[in-house]
């Protein structure tokens, strides 16, 4: 228990930099670096020698056909399984050997492709339990939630459009609503970087524009760096500053949305996959 504590105490210092100021500083040091990461399951190579950078304050997209290893890379970054080779750093710190909680407390958070919320609690409780734990002391564990926290929770629920349903049991929400709730919970946690696994999958197409807008606002107004896996090309091209494309577990191409859209290898990979 001592080791993670020591780390978490450093975290606020990192966050003391004004997050909004960091926005769009593409030339500053990348906040996440992935270097030569390889991951195999049994004999199947899910990721092979992948290197990429996530720039601070930007929206970075990760695309690729089904089975190209996007979610595996996500899981490697947030610590769900060990990697076979390579290195992953977050704010200059090696995280490839840390456990999920430690990484989350550093401010690197993910949402799930199959949404995960606390089904038996109502939405407000779901939000309140998501307050950042990196600063939590033992005494905080026995405190009640403050009025500001409650207000923040309600504001964020309003932000994602779930305010009217705040007292519903989260498990009774529709899949799309649960996704929005999970997004709001992630924002409640004040992450530095948010990894989103297919945020628009399962969401009513008429609401996708609203979601894109909210993601962008989370990026610009709250200063959260985003790394997004997305299948919907319109969505990712609309949002991302930089896009990486994976195919067959390897990095195929990277660049701005325009470069990716015109990259023959990417087009081939997608057509080949169908």
């Amino acid at each position: 228990m001592n080791a993670p504590d020591a780390r978490t105490q450093e975290a606020p210092a990192v966050r003391a930099e004004p997050p909004t100021a960091a926005g769009r500083q593409a030339d500053s040091e990348p906040i996440i670096t992935v270097r030569g990461v390889t991951k195999t399951f049994g004999g199947v190579v899910a990721n092979h020698n992948i290197s990429l950078d996530v720039a601070r304050g930007q929206i970075t997209g990760l695309i690729g056909p089904n089975g190209s290893g996007k979610t595996t890379l996500f899981n490697s970054i947030v610590g769900y399984h060990p990697i076979d080779a390579g290195s992953i750093t977050f704010e200059g710190r090696e995280i490839s050997r840390m456990r999920v909680q430690q990484i989350a407390r550093l401010g690197l958070l993910r949402t799930f492709q199959q949404t995960r919320i606390y089904g038996k609690m109502n939405c407000v409780d779901n939000m309140l339990i998501s307050i950042p734990h990196r600063k939590a002391t033992v005494l905080d564990m026995f405190a009640r939630h403050s009025r500001e926290q409650l207000e923040r929770a309600e504001r964020l629920l309003h932000f994602v459009g779930l305010y009217e349903k705040r007292f519903l049991r989260a498990g009774d929400l529709s899949f799309g609503q649960q996704k929005l709730l999970e997004f709001a919970m992630a924002l409640m946690n004040e992450p530095t970087v948010l990894l989103l696994d297919e945020p628009t999958a399962g969401i009513n197409p008429t609401l996708i524009n609203g979601l894109i807008d909210r993601l962008k606002r989370a990026n610009t107004e709250l200063g959260i760096t985003l790394l997004i896996i997305e299948h919907n090309m319109r969505v990712i091209m609309n949002m991302a500053d930089t896009i990486y494309c994976l195919a067959h577990g390897e990095l195929l191409a990277s660049g701005t949305p325009e470069e990716i859209q015109n990259d023959q290898r990417v087009i081939d990979a997608y057509l080949g996959a169908h």
Partner: peptide, 11 residues
């Protein structure tokens, strides 16, 4: 309700 999620949120 979901321990893995709780870990993922840094609890």
């Amino acid at each position: 309700d979901d321990e893995e999620k709780a870990e993922g949120m840094g609890i």
